[in-house]
């Protein structure tokens, strides 16, 4: 067998039409990946997300993330199959980093127990904000304040497609103020 490598793939499905159709399409692609890959590690549904810009006149799509180990010829095969598929708006196949498995596990654990998920997110947010406070210098105080407010949204956005746009707007605003400050510092 030829060389095998760890790949990750994100596929954006057309969300127009029946939900059953979309599900079927996702299963079809999943089975294709399972067939081609030597080891199918898993997939994660990112859900329906709004696009940052329209793709083929669509404003939203269903994002699905796949992680698998396969021979080096497989990405090209998958790519040609996905190109033919009209229900696939866009796809990205890249070599996965070593921590991709951890990411998949995290996202799958999050998706299951809802009550646990919230507390974990809170802990994470607190931990991250603390870290950021440690690293930021006095000059960047204002900047770090915007960072702290942004960090909790990191966790939420991955699953909650609907609230993504609101978050992005907020992040955009905060970003803007941070930029202005940078300018004034210069």
């Amino acid at each position: 067998m030829a060389k095998e490598k760890l790949y990750e793939m994100v596929v954006i499905f057309d969300a127009q039409g029946d939900e059953a159709d979309i599900r079927r399409e996702i299963d079809l692609v999943s089975s294709l990946v399972e067939k081609r890959s030597s080891e199918f590690i898993g997939k994660a549904d990112w859900g329906l997300r709004n696009f940052a810009y329209p793709i083929k006149k669509r404003t939203s799509g269903q994002y699905v993330y796949y992680l698998f180990r396969a021979g080096i010829e497989v990405p090209a095969l998958l790519s040609s199959a996905l190109k033919m598929d009209e229900k696939v708006l866009r796809y990205l196949i890249i070599r996965a980093k070593s921590n991709a498995k951890q990411y998949l596990e995290d996202i799958q654990n999050k998706a299951q127990p809802e009550a646990v998920q919230e507390s974990v997110e809170e802990d994470k947010a607190i931990a991250e904000s603390e870290k950021i406070e440690e690293t930021s210098t006095a000059v960047e105080e204002a900047e770090s304040a915007t960072e702290v407010t942004e960090t909790p949204s990191d966790d939420n956005v991955n699953e909650e497609g609907a609230s993504a746009q609101e978050d992005s707007e907020e992040a955009g605003d905060a970003e803007g103020t941070a930029d202005e400050e940078k300018d004034s510092n210069d």
Partner: peptide, 28 residues
């Protein structure tokens, strides 16, 4: 020079999946 936020805090992961972090390094 300002310290690099990624060098000082290795837990910040640069990844397209972590796009809320990336947004901080993109202008208005």
């Amino acid at each position: 020079h300002k310290p690099c936020p990624f060098c000082t805090n290795p837990s910040l992961e640069i990844d397209y999946k972590n796009f809320d972090l990336l947004r901080r390094f993109v202008s208005e």
